[in-house]
Amino acid sequence: MRYLLSLLFCLLAGVAQAAPAKAYMSIIIDDLGQSSERDSRTLALPGPVTMAIMPDTPHATDFAHQAHKAGRTVILHMPMDPATGPYAWHPGIALDELARRLDAALVKVPYAAGINNHMGSRMTAQREPMTWLMGELQRRHLFFVDSRTSAATVAAAEAQALGLAHLSRDVFLDDVRTNEAIAGQLRLGIEVARKQGSAVLIGHPYPQTLSVLAQEIPRLKSQGIELISLRQMIAERGNQAMPAHGRQGRYTNASPLRKQ
């Protein structure tokens, strides 16, 4: 009996001291290229944080060069309706004009490994241009990240139908711009990662967001969270939809007319 109690105590102690089960997280910072000071602070964040650069910003090209030289993943933060500006995509624009705007945006953001949508709640719900975009990204060997600014988005579903490397965002960090709220969203991201094995988070270069991330990213490992690049996350997820975005790995908004 004494031996069994001793064995049980050792087993319980071992469980208490065991490291948390590993889960994966990727973090994207959007809206870069507007401020050299904020861009620099973002680039100084520890770990493989992805830099999403807007094409219609004064420092887009210079910062893309800096980020690439620093070994960070660069993606094009593509403006989509209701965003405005010379690169923005809007419903009703002809495909050849959408192509011209995409070409011009990629010139402004060199070294882009993929794109994600800036705004886009209306545009990402348009199936025809999203289908065209995914085919174009496939041709260019670029990946797509659906920022999921609307539940009506079909972008990730079209990427999946084509077999394009893609991801969907799980958590926005800073809809509320306070340190407390952002820290809370980061904790939510950790919970999501533990529950489903991975989480993709998107934030912005607000001073509060950068402050929280600079403090908390070094603590992720002790919480069983491994911060990984977007390409690693794409490989980890294998183009599958997460439970909040679909069923049995397929997106809820997949076209009923297309087999996947």
Rank of each mutant, 00 (worst) to 15 (best):
Gly14Ile: 11
Pro79Met: 07
Arg139Lys: 13
Ser147Cys: 04
Ile228Trp: 07
Ala161Gln: 13
His77Trp: 11
Asp56Met: 11
Ser150Ile: 05
Gly203Ala: 08
His68Trp: 10
Arg100Ala: 11
Ala151Phe: 14
Met54His: 13
Leu102His: 04
Val49Leu: 09
Ala125Leu: 05
Leu220Phe: 12
Asp81Arg: 08
Gln196Thr: 05
Arg140Leu: 06
Glu180Cys: 08
Gln208His: 04
Ala16Gln: 14
Gly238Tyr: 13
Thr153Phe: 01
Ala181Phe: 09
Leu167Trp: 07
Leu12Cys: 06
Ile75Asn: 04
Thr42Phe: 07
Asp174Gly: 09
Phe63Ala: 06
Arg258Ser: 00
Gln240Gly: 00
Gly120Met: 01
His59Arg: 15
Arg122Ile: 08
Ala67Cys: 04
Tyr24Thr: 00
Cys10Asp: 00
Asp146Gly: 03
Ala159Glu: 06
Ala18Asn: 04
Thr252Val: 03
Met54Cys: 14
Ala44Asp: 13
Met80His: 11
Leu7Asn: 02
Ala241Asn: 02
Arg187Tyr: 12
Glu191His: 15
Ala70Phe: 11
Asp62Ala: 15
Ala23His: 11
Glu97Ile: 12
Ala183Val: 05
Ala161Trp: 11
Thr178Gly: 10
Ala161His: 10
Arg101Ala: 07
Phe143His: 01
Met123His: 15
Ile75Pro: 02
Lys195Glu: 15
Arg100Lys: 13
Arg127Leu: 12
Leu102Phe: 06
Ile115His: 09
Ala18Pro: 01
Leu45Asn: 04
Ile53Ser: 10
Lys22Gly: 00
Gln185Met: 13
Leu142Gln: 15
Gly120Asn: 01
Arg187Glu: 15
Ala88Trp: 08
Lys108Pro: 00
Arg237Gln: 08
Ile182Phe: 07
Met130Gln: 06
Thr153Gln: 03
Lys221Ser: 07
Phe9Trp: 13
Arg237Leu: 08
Ala67Gly: 04
Ser150Pro: 07
Val212Glu: 01
Ala199Tyr: 02
Leu220Trp: 15
Ala214Thr: 10
Pro110Thr: 05
Arg122Cys: 08
Ser211Gln: 12
Arg140Cys: 01
Asp96Tyr: 11
Asp31Phe: 04
Arg258Pro: 00
Leu45Glu: 06
Trp89Leu: 01
Leu137Phe: 07
Gly120Tyr: 01
Gly120Val: 02
Arg72Ser: 05
Ala112Gly: 07
Asn239Ile: 02
Leu186Phe: 03
Pro205His: 14
His59Ile: 09
Pro218Asn: 01
Gly14His: 13
Ile228Ala: 02
His204Lys: 10
Arg258Cys: 00
His77Glu: 10
Ala44Phe: 12
Trp132Val: 03
Glu158Phe: 09
Asp146Val: 06
Gln34Tyr: 15
Leu8Ala: 10
Pro82His: 06
His141Gln: 13
